[in-house]
């Protein structure tokens, strides 16, 4: 499963940003870095792809999260990618 590094841009209202941090801390799959003004670095480690996506979507929808930038992803343990296509004659290879 990919481990991703995210940069969250939080609201400039301190109490709103603090609530975001509190809620993020409640999720064990999220590792928080140090808040730099309104920018908060986090690492997300989901148990599977669906879970990772759910966490990402949950973060995006949190009130007080203005924007989510992705900084990195590690997919060393990732599943092998597959083709969605019906193969052509090339399949013979």
């Amino acid at each position: 499963m990919p481990v991703s590094g995210l940069l969250l841009t939080l609201s400039t209202e301190e109490h709103v940003a603090a609530e975001v941090v509190r809620r993020l801390q409640s999720r064990r799959e999220i590792l928080l870095g140090e808040l730099q003004q309104q920018w908060l670095p986090v690492a997300v480690d989901g148990c599977d792809e669906r879970h990772s996506r759910e966490v990402h979507d949950w973060i995006v929808k949190l009130p007080g999260v203005v924007f989510v930038d992705v900084v990195s992803v590690h997919f060393e343990d990732g599943e092998q990618t597959s083709s969605p296509h019906a193969l052509t004659d090339c399949k013979a290879a």
Binding site: L6, L31, Q36, Q37, L40, A43, D45, S72, H74
Partner: peptide, 22 residues
């Protein structure tokens, strides 16, 4: 696993610091 998480966090922290100018 922890190593990967810390690596990801370090990358994000570097960008946060860059944006914050520290």
């Amino acid at each position: 696993r922890e190593l990967l998480k810390l690596s990801a966090l370090a990358g994000a922290a570097a960008v946060a610091a860059s944006r914050a100018g520290v």
